[in-house]
Design a protein around this nucleic acid. Structure first.
Lengths: 209, 209
DNA sequence: GCAGCAATTATTCAAGTGTATAATTTCAGC
DNA sequence: GCTGAAATTATACACTTGAATAATTGCTGC
């Protein structure tokens, strides 16, 4: 009579990632307040009670979701590196262009990133995650900058390279944000061109457009 | 017996701004989900019912708070301009230094800004506010860049100045974010120095440190 | 000082929240 | 096929949420 809902047993890992993905979807669509246990469960095709089974508390699930998000963003940028040419200058140029064009530029990712950033000032764990991913990205950029300068026969030293990496990272972040949030403000390919020219001036290098 | 709470009548404007300030405080301290009508009223020294009296709905209050936040950020940056020197180069340098050091650099402001950014992709009104404040800030920077280039006798044209303003704006945004969120990563005065040197390379100008 | 109106508080309510627990169902091992 | 343990659903609950309404208070104009 009451016809209890039928279900299939999925592995623990599958269920955890499904719940995490559902959480990220909810946050992206409606902000943190939209990520209720019921909404998450619905989107994951599951009953609210199951969340309790895999995560002690909803807070744990949200924390896991944010960590997963950051890890994915980092991995996505790392994966893109594999497809870039070996020549240091072309490699750096491709890296820059990647960072300021779709699919890296993406309103949904940007909304999720903003949700995470909001937590950083008051959550030590989030700060640690942010610091680690920030430094990993920046260090990678610093190495590419050093390689490019060396390939071009330009002099460089550690403190200057560090400063350039910090500035270059900030530049890419800022362009990524605006391109994601106000796509209509920029013509097709304009962001790419602006980013590459800015880096060329910053590093005093000729970068191929 | 029941000793009803005593109160004073404040003007409508005073109450509205008090409620808006309380809302921003709540969001800064605990994110959007912490901004409940009760928490806001408590912080404003008022009863929850009064919110209804001044704002039809809580959503209206939150929207007003975000708009106020953006306006204040813009006004703060405009006010700081008045204290800067008239010489275009020194003026631009001071503007840059301002943007990447306290009190403009501030974890609380950054958390609030992140909360706003999160809304932009899915709220047309927020996007309009963001677009207007973004363009206002960028236009101001573009004018200062043009003035500095002219003062230094450098050639410049409109499209290049525009690109430089977009890049410079992004650079300042990115540095502001990281300085606000990971203050321990940067030595005293390092951000200032990095920002000024980066702009000097970007514009091919000598900027006084 | 008093009348009346608007500001403010107090109270109430239905809906939604996270979580705990009990009831069922799936499925692997025999 | 049976059994038992683990996964999943269903139900219940206490609490918080935003909002609506009623009761009171402060204040302005006379």
């Amino acid at each position: 009579m009451t016809a209890r809902r039928t279900f299939k047993r999925e592995g623990e890992e599958a269920r955890r990632t499904a719940l995490i993905d559902a959480t990220l979807d909810c946050i992206a669509e409606g902000g943190p307040q939209a990520a209720t246990v019921r909404a998450i469960a619905l989107k994951a095709g599951v009953t609210p009670g199951l969340i309790k089974h895999y995560f002690d508390t909803k807070e744990d699930l949200v924390a896991a979701a944010h960590e997963t998000l950051m890890t994915r963003l980092t991995e996505a940028s790392a994966a893109a590196l594999d497809d870039l040419p070996a020549d240091p200058i072309a490699r750096l140029t491709g890296f820059i262009a990647n960072a300021v064009t779709p699919p890296v530029v993406d309103p949904r990712a940007m909304a999720l990133w903003a949700a995470s950033m909001q937590l950083v000032p008051r959550d030590a764990a989030m700060r640690d995650v942010h610091e680690a991913t920030y430094l990993a990205f920046r260090d990678r950029l610093e190495r590419m900058i050093a390689d490019a300068l060396r390939a071009a026969g330009k002099p460089y030293d550690k403190p200057t390279t560090r400063a350039l990496a910090i500035a270059g990272n900030a530049l890419l972040d800022g362009l990524w944000i605006e391109a994601s949030v106000l796509p209509d403000q920029f013509a097709q390919g304009e962001m790419r061109s602006i980013a590459i020219r800015a880096f060329a001036r910053l590093l005093d290098l000729k970068l191929p457009e």
